[in-house]
């Protein structure tokens, strides 16, 4: 456990020392929203209604940029070799990678979402539930993304392989994440909202349980 804590702290140090990475991610996230808002100029009544979809889709697009090199650095700089020799389980490592990816990539976007919400005229009552759905749903994106990243571990040229494989896995998260907020916007707080939230939490829980196992298996397969 001591060693996994050390690795986790090193990962956090590593991801947060790439300041440009998450600053550009936040800028890209804001830019997508800003551009679409400008595109929908003159249709201000539509914007608050489509805002949840806009925010979720933008977050997924931004995250795709960060998925590619989650494990590749460690594969090419020999870190994975060292951990394998030192008997660090790939399961533990994938878990650490997924959590640190969420902290470095999803959390900053969730934090600036209230500002983004103002930009897209999102009702102030919807902003907090929006953040809650993001907090519940985005871990699934990170965990599934890490699994996808392990698939392209040893491929120097991978193009669109990973997005094509993992995009379908993002659909349920998108459906329930947007669905919960649509219920809230159009019908107010009702049971269906909480049901959709529970389903979203279920998907995140399943991703947290199974994706690191799959990642570990895929990474190991690269060695065998």
């Amino acid at each position: 456990m001591r060693i996994y804590r050390l690795i986790f702290l090193r990962e956090l140090r590593k991801v947060f020392s790439y300041k440009a990475n998450y600053i550009f991610s936040l800028m890209f996230y804001s830019s997508i929203i800003f551009l679409i808002s400008i595109g929908l100029q003159g249709q201000n009544s539509i914007l608050p209604n489509v805002a949840p979809s806009l925010i979720w889709v933008s977050i997924i697009l931004v995250l795709f940029l960060s998925f590619e090199d989650i494990f590749q650095d460690d594969y090419y700089d020999g870190t994975l070799d060292i951990y394998r020799i030192e008997n660090i389980t790939f399961y533990g490592f994938a878990l650490i990678k997924s959590i640190s990816h969420w902290l470095a990539n999803c959390l900053p976007m969730i934090i600036i979402t209230p500002i983004i919400g103002i930009l897209v005229n999102l009702d102030s009552e919807v902003i907090l539930p929006m953040m809650i759905t993001l907090i519940i749903g985005t871990p699934a994106l990170s965990f599934i993304g890490c699994m996808g990243s392990s698939l392209i571990l040893s491929l120097k040229i991978h193009g669109l392989i990973m997005p094509i494989i993992i995009l379908p896995l993002f659909l349920p998260i998108l459906v329930f994440g947007i669905g919960a907020l649509d219920v809230l916007i159009f019908n107010g707080f009702e049971e269906l909202f909480f049901r959709q939230l529970a389903l979203l939490a279920g998907i995140s829980g399943l991703s947290m349980a199974f994706c690191p196992i799959a990642s570990a298996y895929i990474i190991k397969a690269n060695y065998d």
């Binding site: 090193r10 140090r13 590593k14 020392s17 790439y18 650095d73 460690d74 090419y76 700089d77 020999g78 870190t79 070799d81 060292i82 020799i85 008997n87």
Partner: peptide, 18 residues
């Protein structure tokens, strides 16, 4: 005895930004 192995390879797990 695998616990006693140390491999110094071409890549030493050095993180560029640390």
């Amino acid at each position: 005895n695998k616990k006693e192995i140390f491999l110094l390879g071409h890549n030493a797990g050095i993180k560029q930004n640390l």
